[in-house]
């Protein structure tokens, strides 16, 4: 009896030692030397693995930071200045304070609802629809509305508005990681500075067609007329390929262009409701309501209040 116990103990003990030795040798042989700093940096990152920095994930970003030794060209948008400061502290280098940013959808919400010209009946994927044709609105540059951006967002910050079919960004949740901008096959989404007091002005259109053609695609298309460029006091606006662009680093949010734009393609966000004497508020264009109809179709005339 005691013999049995003894044998069992010895066998198990020997086996244990044997395995321990094998494990030790293997561990030594395949040891990967890694800078412990990488772990520390990865620790302070948000860990969402959104890929907004252009790296495969947060750990890859940390590796890149440590390898480079400084923060030049590396930025974690979701973490913002606070996280970047922490990373810089760990690395012992300095970091530039970035402006807080937000994703902006540069397509006019009135566009798709009014000008639907076809009915898309395939895979719900913008990337695929983009290879087929212009999309339901007929605008070859506009939002396709299948929600590739919604799927790409790790922060639940962008959703399709069911009434317009165009995504809306929740500025409070958006971390400006840029995943949606990358997912959009038409580059409709842009990462822009949030602006002072969260007030920002931007051209809500990316249509590069000539004015008349663009206007046919969408009532609120930028036609590249250049009125905004002329009126801008700080020359923040430039026109390229029939499309106006407001440089957010120069814009002072004076809103002169918003009033000037003949197609209401320039949007302002975050401003208080217009005062009594505001000349032409962008939100409520006082123009006849246009409905695209074809012969033989039943039409409901919208009540004009």
């Amino acid at each position: 009896m005691t013999n049995d116990i003894l044998i069992a103990v010895i066998v198990l003990g020997v086996l244990g030692i044997l395995f321990a030795v094998v494990l030790y040798i293997v561990a030594q042989k395949f040891k990967v030397l890694e800078d412990p700093l990488i772990d520390e940096v990865a620790e302070v990152l948000p860990g969402a693995n959104c890929g907004g920095c252009g790296k495969a994930g947060c750990r890859a970003f940390a590796e890149a930071c440590v390898k480079q030794g400084n923060m030049d060209g590396l930025r974690c948008a979701p973490g913002g200045n606070a996280v970047m400061a922490k990373v810089a502290e760990l690395l012992g280098c300095s970091v530039e304070q970035g402006e807080p940013q937000v994703a902006v959808v540069r397509c006019n919400p009135s566009c798709k609802g009014a000008n639907r010209r076809s009915n898309y009946d395939g895979l719900q994927s913008c990337a695929f629809q983009n290879t087929l044709y212009t999309g339901e609105s007929g605008c070859p540059f506009g939002c396709l509305g299948c929600g590739d951006c919604v799927e790409a967002c790790q922060f639940d910050a962008i959703h399709i508005d069911p009434s317009t079919g165009i995504p809306v960004v929740d500025a409070n949740k958006c971390t400006a990681c840029g995943a949606c901008a990358k997912a959009c096959p038409r580059r409709v989404i842009e990462i822009r500075n949030k602006g002072r007091k969260e007030r920002r002005v931007f051209v809500s259109c990316v249509n590069k067609e000539k004015g008349a053609v663009a206007r046919k695609s969408c009532d609120n298309a930028c036609i590249g007329c250049g009125k905004c460029e002329k009126v801008c006091p700080v020359s923040a606006i430039s026109i390229n390929d029939n499309l106006s662009y407001i440089d957010f680093t120069k814009c002072i949010a004076c809103r002169k262009c918003v009033v000037e734009c003949p197609t209401h393609a320039i949007h302002d966000v975050g401003f208080p409701a217009p005062a009594k004497k505001a000349e032409a508020p962008a939100e409520a264009p006082q123009e006849p309501i246009k409905v695209n109809i074809t012969v033989g179709e039943k039409v409901e005339i919208p009540a004009n209040n």
């Binding site: 395939g122 895979l123 994927s125 990337a127 695929f128 290879t131």
Partner: peptide
């Protein structure tokens, strides 16, 4: 299932 749509998307990717 829109199999061919998905395959085309996959091929593009």
């Amino acid at each position: 299932k829109p199999l061919l749509d998905e395959i085309r998307l996959g091929k593009n990717r």
